[in-house]
Nucleic acid binder design. Structure first.
Lengths: 137, 137
DNA sequence: ACTTGACCTTCCAGTTGGTGGAAGCTTTAC
DNA sequence: GTAAAGCTTCCACCAACTGGAAGGTCAAGT
């Protein structure tokens, strides 16, 4: 564990697992505060900034949209937050994931069933194309 | 059932459930062949074109990426195709869907577990934020 | 001292699959 | 006759980055 220190974007990237390009993008997008600069315009990051970046990274890995990540970050830094707000965002995201899962599962099963019925040989007959080309539903 | 007839993009859109904008986009993207034109530059569609659009629409509803839709369409119009090719595309897509499903399911479960442990009240304590802000993995 | 390579900076383009709107021409309906 | 509806093209925008070009800076090696 190194003590507090300022670092360049490259090191902050290495420590947070967020690539430099993405850090700049988050800054531009208003997800994180603009970094301080050295006299030669290099961005400078503190350990606290790295923590923030890690937070963003974890939230993204859980699939939260960036807008929600920004809100979560605000709540994270607000000592007077109500956990109700956080839970609301989390449950909203779970609901969105459930919708997406249902959609993808339906697709997957439809195609898998069709593929199973397809011979997969040299001949043209194919239930997959037949289904896609069906005139009637 | 109307007999064969030429129609404008609006009617083709209505019959195929693919909006005019999207039809033009598919043409621009090379998914479908450029439509014939009248002397006043209006696009003209035949019943066969509508069939093609419906094919594209169904393939998209099953989540096939546009590139794969283009390939499927080519196979669909090739009487000498091997169903092997079609099946290969279908199984590749099933595999992609399975990967996505695994990813989303993992996200969903992680967040659901965290949310369950969150009181969701006025107070700031929150396992969701705690997890996102965790210094150690 | 100088050069090379690895950083950093900004800006622009591309990705995927469309959607919305502006500006302008036709055609249709009243 | 005129206005609404529908057609045309082109440009911009959504998410969430990623890649590359052009140029500035800095540390190390010779």
């Amino acid at each position: 564990m190194k003590p507090n220190g300022m670092m360049t974007i490259g090191e902050a990237a290495a420590r947070s697992s967020v690539p430099p390009k993405t850090i700049r993008f988050y800054e531009e997008a208003g997800i994180i505060k603009p970094a301080a600069r050295t006299e030669n315009h290099y961005r400078v990051y503190s350990d606290a900034d790295v923590e923030t970046l890690r937070f963003v990274q974890r939230a993204r890995m859980l699939g939260f949209p960036l807008k929600d990540v920004a809100e979560l970050l605000e709540l994270y830094h607000d000592r007077k937050r109500a956990s109700r707000e956080v839970k609301k965002l989390a449950l909203k995201h779970v609901a969105a994931l459930d919708r997406k899962l249902a959609e993808l599962t339906a697709m997957r099963n439809t195609i898998a069933v069709l593929a199973e019925r397809c011979q997969g040989n040299d001949r043209p007959a194919c239930p997959i194309l037949a289904e896609l080309g069906a005139t009637e539903h």
